[in-house]
Amino acid sequence: MKEYCVILFQTVTQSVWTSRLLKKAGIERKMVPIPRSLSADCGYCVRVLRDDAQRVRELLDRSGVGCARIENYQ
């Protein structure tokens, strides 16, 4: 079974930006609702494979998307 992380941001604008960056980089991603256990926000976050988490972190640091939280996702 695949293991996932979710990347949470302050604003969905960052989520959309990240989704577009990951798409360009060929990294599997999906927009999913923010898990209630992680935040009370009604928006969405970006789900990626746990194995890609480090690559994603580096990509975000390089691109200027801004602060993000990466959490394990069941």
């Binding site: 959309v16 930006w17 927009m31 609702p33 923010i34 009604c42 928006g43 969405y44």
Partner: peptide
């Protein structure tokens, strides 16, 4: 930016 369904996500993409 208000929900995770396809229409909301696509709208967010269009604005971005």
């Amino acid at each position: 930016g208000r929900s995770a369904h396809a229409r909301s996500v696509d709208a967010g993409e269009a604005v971005f």
